[in-house]
C-alpha cells in the first residue's frame, strides 16, 4: 500500500467533495501496548477516520494534559521506543493509505538526529511531522530535512498567535495547519470556547492551507461547530484516550466503544 499513500491535500479534497469535514482521531502509539494500540488504530480506520494523528510518547510532555500524559506513561511502560514507533507505522500501512501525521516532542528528533528521524519517518509511511515544542523560531533547521524526504512539516496556530506570526507560520507549514482550540493543554472539555470560532476564521484569512482544529474537541457538537466555523477537519484525542483508560481491563468493550464513538464523530462531519 506504501506506493499510493494519500496526501493531506488529496484527503481534504476527497472529504470536501463528499460534503464532509475530515475526522482525525489521535492515539499514542503503544498505548496500552503495541498490539492493542494497533487494533485501536484499525478501529479508527474502520469507523470513519479520514486521517490519523499519532503521538510518540515522551517522558515530559509539557503541552499535554493528564489524559495524554497517562497514555504516554502506559506506552513507555509497555516498552515503546522511537524505532518501535516507526515499526508501528509500517504495520498501519499494511491496512490503510490515509494520511498519517506524527505529533512528537522535539527531543526525540534531536536525539536521533533530524536526518535519521525524517528518513525513518518517510520509510515508515508517514505524511507529516509536528513537533509540539518547536515554534517557527527554532524550526528553520527542520524544513530542509522535511523537504529532502518529502514530508510535511506541520505547525500549530493558537489564540495567542499574532497575525504577523500567522503569516510566518503559514509560510513554513505544509500539509495542514493545526489550530489549537483552547488556551491550555490537551484534554477533553465539555464546552468549546467561543473564541475558537473567531480563531478559525482569523487563521482562514491568513492561509490557504487546510485547517484542522484540535485540543479539547471531545463531542460530536464540537466537531460540528469547528467545521461550521470554517475548519476543514477536527482532531479528537483525549476523549478517545479516556475510553482506552477506562477500559484497560476489557479490550473487547474498549474497541466497541471506540468504534461507536468514532462513528458518531464522523457522522458529525457530514453537513
Amino acid at each position: 500500500m506504501n506506493q499510493d499513500i494519500e496526501s493531506y491535500q488529496e484527503m481534504f479534497d476527497r472529504v470536501k467533495d463528499n460534503g464532509e469535514g475530515a475526522f482525525i482521531p489521535f492515539v499514542v502509539v503503544g498505548d496500552p501496548d503495541f498490539e492493542t494500540s494497533l487494533e485501536i488504530v484499525k478501529t479508527y480506520v474502520d469507523n470513519g477516520a479520514d486521517a490519523l494523528e499519532l503521538g510518540f510518547p515522551f517522558s515530559d510532555p509539557i503541552a499535554d494534559g493528564p489524559t495524554v500524559q497517562a497514555a504516554d506513561i502506559r506506552s513507555l511502560n509497555s516498552g515503546m521506543t522511537t524505532r518501535r514507533g516507526f515499526e508501528f507505522i509500517k504495520r498501519i500501512r499494511e491496512f490503510t493509505n490515509i494520511p498519517i501525521g506524527l505529533l512528537v516532542y522535539y527531543n526525540l528528533i534531536y536525539k536521533m538526529g533530524a536526518d535519521d528521524f525524517y528518513k525513518a519517518a518517510k520509510e515508515s509511511g508517514l505524511n507529516g511531522i509536528l513537533a509540539a515544542d518547536l515554534p517557527p523560531e527554532e524550526a528553520e533547521i527542520l524544513l530542509d530535512t522535511a523537504d529532502k524526504y518529502g514530508l510535511d512539516q506541520i505547525f500549530m496556530a493558537a489564540q495567542t498567535t499574532s497575525n504577523e506570526r500567522l503569516e510566518k507560520i503559514a509560510e513554513m507549514c505544509s500539509g495542514f495547519l493545526y489550530v489549537v482550540a483552547v488556551m491550555g493543554v490537551t484534554g477533553a472539555r465539555s464546552e468549546l470556547a467561543d473564541t475558537t470560532v473567531e480563531l478559525v476564521s482569523r487563521v482562514r484569512s491568513h492561509s490557504d492551507l487546510p485547517l484542522a482544529v484540535g485540543f479539547g474537541i471531545s463531542r460530536p457538537e464540537h466537531v460540528r461547530n469547528v467545521l461550521s466555523a470554517g475548519s476543514d477537519g477536527a482532531i479528537v484525542a483525549s476523549a478517545l484516550l479516556n475510553i482506552i483508560e477506562e477500559n484497560l481491563e476489557n479490550k473487547e468493550v474498549m474497541l466497541t466503544k471506540i468504534g461507536s464513538f468514532c462513528r458518531e464523530l464522523k457522522e458529525a462531519t457530514r453537513k
Binding site: I62, D133, L134, Q159
Partner: peptide, 10 residues
Amino acid sequence: GVFVPELLIP
C-alpha cells in the same frame, strides 16, 4: 533557545 509550544511564545 525557545523550545516551547506556540501558545507560550507571545
